[in-house]
Design a binder for these strands. Structure first.
Lengths: 259, 259
DNA sequence: ATTGACATTGCACGATATTGCACGATACGG
DNA sequence: CCGTATCGTGCAATATCGTGCAATGTCAAT
């Protein structure tokens, strides 16, 4: 039985090792794999064909390449679920009034919001995200204030004591907040502790808090709590988000905007 | 499995690398690609032809250019005099040592410097330019610290009292400074008063100051003085910059590096 | 224990892809 | 206008690919 198990694992383990090597080197070469595993190139080709048919890698002449380049980095996350986020961003833009001071969170939705600010709008944008700042470079009417601090690489926003300190000197009319979860009882939450601190500090400095949440975030909760849901005044959700999900939030006094 | 040293490159991967190099450098040269990939120029020409037919780049005599040159205000300035600035950036990169804390100015040359930091380098980069910060998003080994403040639109860097205040909490090994003029008697100068304040504050917080100056900046002076030239320790200039221009600076004790 | 179904592997072989070289054509710079 | 560098094409050599098939090993049922 153990012999059986070992043999079964050898094939599968070899494929896993191929994927590991691929992730490590960015490419694998059939000939080299053949030598490493001491199997024929035919076997390797078979493995690669099968892995390719499962979408785990991309078959090319001589070996294989990753199916999706650089998974998980910030630039790539910026691409997913774009249509929904774009709709939310466009709707949220309507909440900005001329002359206001607005805080923009990091996150892809807020970058889209920045990109779609009306070209004629004159206002001040406070942000702790360099991406948002860069997005506003060519906007003629927007004054940009950058919150500094150590940059949390995963989400590319300033975090830490320096950022918290800088935030205490800000007073804003509205804060557009991105979350990974908004839940009637669990509250507003996000996946990183440092980010939660920052968002809480930002929310405390804005007269109105607008939460931007795609459907999967509604009635969900992440590890770190930012604040009670009542800390938010308005929630912008997708058009397709069911009323059943948003009604409990509306019952708590929040304004629900469907994009 | 033993570590297999990849001594050659898959065709498709080579094409991806060509595109990456093109995006990074703004141009590629057939001969240089041939040498770096250790294949014949014919193969490179074939690659370039095929990539051009896919619309991924624009074929020109001797190499290739990006198919769609990015447009924009700041982005556009980023394109001018690229080769000279790139050479300076590449030379300046050599001054960075592992584990160091370095301050990077705003400006196109510093963005190029950030882009060309060795992928394996582990260090801390302090910057008041969101563009530089965004450039470092996907660098695995670089810790980024953002100096916040009001963003001066023309050059896209944080300026003002908040930025000055934040800088006082920093201590760096080296400061890569961009200037619009470096003159033996007029000193280091720039075109904006706020920027001059910032650069002066940054220079005061770094153990070593490296000035990056393309030829037209040497022996030139702008409206606002940052400091005496002796505030700088090293000046990186273009290879073509005449000794006659740099000798007066060297006489003042500055190290001159020709890119 | 034996047998048959099934999985995995290696080999043969024709098909396809990639590469480098030769050669004539074309573009660039002085 | 000419020399040089670069370019594109044809071609041959080599490498890689996919498929069919036989050999070996494993598993489950008898």
């Amino acid at each position: 039985m153990s012999i059986t198990f070992v043999h079964f694992m050898l094939t599968k383990h070899r494929k896993q090792s191929i994927l590991a090597a691929l992730k490590r080197d960015g490419q694998v070469i059939a000939k080299a794999l053949s030598a490493s595993f001491e199997v024929s190139e035919d076997t390797i080709r078979r493995d690669l064909r099968e892995l390719a048919s499962e979408g785990l890698l991309q078959r090319v002449h001589g070996g294989a390449l990753p199916s999706s380049p650089a998974v998980g980095d910030f630039v790539q996350r910026q691409q997913i679920n774009t249509v929904a986020k774009l709709a939310i961003a466009r709707k949220a833009v309507e909440l900005m009034l001329p002359g206001q001071v607005a805080i923009l969170d990091g996150g892809t939705t807020c970058v889209l919001l920045a990109r779609h600010l009306p070209p004629t709008l004159e206002a001040t944008i406070v942000t702790h995200s360099p991406s948002v700042a860069v997005e506003l470079v060519n906007h003629p009417g927007i004054e940009v204030v950058m919150i500094g601090g150590r940059l949390f690489k995963h989400s590319m926003v300033a975090v830490g004591a320096a950022a918290i300190e800088a935030i205490t000197h800000i007073r804003a009319d509205v804060y557009f907040m991105g979350v990974t979860g908004i839940h009637p009882t669990a509250g507003l939450s996000t996946g990183d502790l440092e980010e939660a601190y920052i968002k809480r500090a930002l929310a405390a400095r804005a007269a109105e808090v607008v939460v931007l949440a795609s459907t999967e975030k509604v009635n969900a909760a992440s590890a770190y709590v930012i604040a009670e849901v009542t800390a938010a005044n308005t929630v912008v959700v997708e058009r397709k988000t069911p009323r059943a999900l948003t009604d409990p939030l509306a019952a708590l006094g929040l304004t629900i905007l469907h994009a």
